[in-house]
Design a protein around this nucleic acid. Sequence first.
RNA 1: CGGAGCGUGGCGCAGCUUGGUAGCGCGCAUCGUUCGGGACGAUGAGGUCGCCGGUUCAAAUCCGGCCGCUCCGACCA
Length: 420
Amino acid sequence: MRRSQLFVKTRYQEPADETSKGAQLLIRAGFIHKEMAGVYSYLPFGKQVLANIASVIREEMNKIGGQEVDMSILQNKELWEASDRWDDTKVDNWFKSKLVNGTEVGLGFSHEEPIVNMLRGFTSSHKDFPIYIYQIQTKFRNELRARSGVMRGREFLMKDLYSFSRNQKEHDDFYEKVTQAYMKIYNRLGLGDITYKTFASGGVFSKYSHEFQTLSHVGEDTIYLSKAKKLAINKEVYSDEVLQHLGLKKEDLVDEKAVEVGNIFSLGTKYSDALKLFYTDDNGQRQSIIMGCYGIGVSRLMGLLAEHFADDKGLVWPANVAPFDVYLARLGDSSQVVKEAGELYKRLTQAGTLVLYDDRDASAGEKFADADLIGLPYRLVVSDKTIENKMYELKKRSSAKPEQLNAESLIKALAKPKQS
RNA sequence: CGGAGCGUGGCGCAGCUUGGUAGCGCGCAUCGUUCGGGACGAUGAGGUCGCCGGUUCAAAUCCGGCCGCUCCGACCA
């Protein structure tokens, strides 16, 4: 993409109405636009980052048998009354509205009820199960207070997976598979080293649920973690009894601030029973379905990545999620520089490299500052100097020193690595 | 929802105490000079001072109400 054609502009100063470093950088670099407290629009770069995170998640969900759908956001009140979750005293963060005829509808904060109801129309035999369905869509939650920019919004992008198993073992096996898949996702996003499977409140369905907590000073949660065992306990369930149950010693744990980047729940048969989703076993008997739900906050991850992968000059995106691979800075506007940079842009693009071509009539300093702020993995310079040397200048965002490359090695260096 | 702070061109801010024709920096436009780390000069455009009401000859400024934003707390299936 040519920078001159992009409507988004970067900002020199921090926005006054954000205090989170990550949100400030995302706004300054033109990834997001704040509509109101806890509500953000995603601009071209931000939309691409979300798509890249989603694509990592999608690949791992598909690998464990997930089938992707896109459920409606408008919710049918009757389904939620069946499970007694429509009442504002039961779920206090509903956004609700009304049809012209007065019928109440909700904006989805989660999708257990509608997805169970939908499945009733397609399943009846034990041969139909297990089933794993997920979606990546916008959720609405009427939080009392939005916070930390895009990390805790009222409207946010979330991946939610629902599992439907015939018995406890089948459920437990899949639950473990999801745990593995989640760790793969955090690894691929560069957060694996600081993300911990964490024991948290299980609600009424099981003893624990599991959260995935990434260590960060902007975290809203406190966890007690064992680095050796790669496990943690959320403060909300931390007690001697829990420690004993998990075989952990108090003195081996340290407390840290962390961000909840995922949460997996065993739901038992509560929603499947309430909405009458059953199956017939091989003896012709009606049986309950055991459910699980598994969430990952996609937009929250973007906020966390911006917070974590940054330095004093701006963002430093991991290659997997960066909106482009390389920032091509054309310095000066001599006809040979314009020609050379234009041709390089074309050539790299044809080779599959995603290039953000800064073809504006701006100073070198401004282009370098923008390249640092936006934080693409590489910065490539074409100038009279590089043409004179018959070399290109390539610099990693994460490193201070540039290297000089000829055209062939440049194209090779920027070729996309194969993703696992 | 309790406590605190804030709201003035696109962005960041001053002005308010002590009422008297709305300012600075960045950005933007035009011209010229520049051109490897956010260049310089000249000229210029752009503002219902969050909204409503009150006091006053006169309100960005004083008073009341409302709305919005931020932080702390509570809350977060």
